[in-house]
Nucleic acid binder design. Structure first.
Length: 185
DNA sequence: ATAGAGATTGCCT
DNA sequence: GGCAATCTCTATA
């Protein structure tokens, strides 16, 4: 049966613009995805999967729609959506969202670390099926942007790790909610 | 075995 | 602007 999120089977660069506007739900918390980065298989030097599977990244090799949660800099829990076909590691890093319901006043979901904290994401949320209607952490259809996404380079990558590739996608109507935008200043 | 870098953020000067 | 916090993986021995 056809599923609304079947496009997540596509490679990261195809899936990334289509996830913008979707709703991310964790219990009573609901937010709208406004910024993602694509991490593209073993050829992408910026991807955790660049050097093959490890205990940390093995879920990236699994089915589309799974969560990939990992601890960055020993402190921040970052949330990805696994995309592409099983065996081909791809992921979308969720970098920013717009709070819609259930968050405290003035909360910031701008930046992957802050987003993980606000959504109370931790290692228990790794490898969950985000497409299952009864999953505590899941995706739900939202309002897709009517304009093409804004596209620019990924954040935080060292030189030689694909830092110049246009792999970051921003909701065109919510650019003020994205991290590091405008790109130059 | 040990050291250093990393998909970040907040606090200090 | 500088840097500490602190876990996982990679490189070197």
């Amino acid at each position: 049966m056809a599923h609304f999120f079947d496009f997540l089977r596509q490679p990261p660069l195809s899936a990334a613009p289509q996830i913008l506007g979707a709703h991310l739900v964790h219990g009573e918390l609901i937010c709208r995805i406004v910024e993602v980065e694509a991490y593209c298989s073993a050829d992408d030097p910026g991807s955790h999967a660049h050097r093959g599977p490890t205990p940390r990244n093995q879920v990236m090799f699994g089915r589309h729609g799974l969560s990939y949660v990992y601890l960055n800099y020993g402190i921040h829990w970052l949330l990805n959506i696994v995309v592409d076909e099983p065996g081909t590691p791809g992921a979308l890093l969720i970098r920013a969202a717009e709070p819609l319901r259930g968050f405290p006043p003035h909360v910031s979901l701008k930046g992957p670390g802050r987003l993980g904290k606000a959504l109370a994401i931790n290692r228990e949320h790794n490898a969950l099926d985000l497409l299952h209607p009864e999953s505590p952490l899941r995706l739900e259809p939202g309002t897709p942007p009517s304009q093409p996404p804004l596209i620019t380079t990924r954040i935080g990558l060292a030189p030689g790790k694909g830092e110049d590739l246009p792999y970051r996608f921003i909701h065109p109507d919510r650019a003020h909610l994205a991290s590091h935008w405008p790109p130059k200043g």
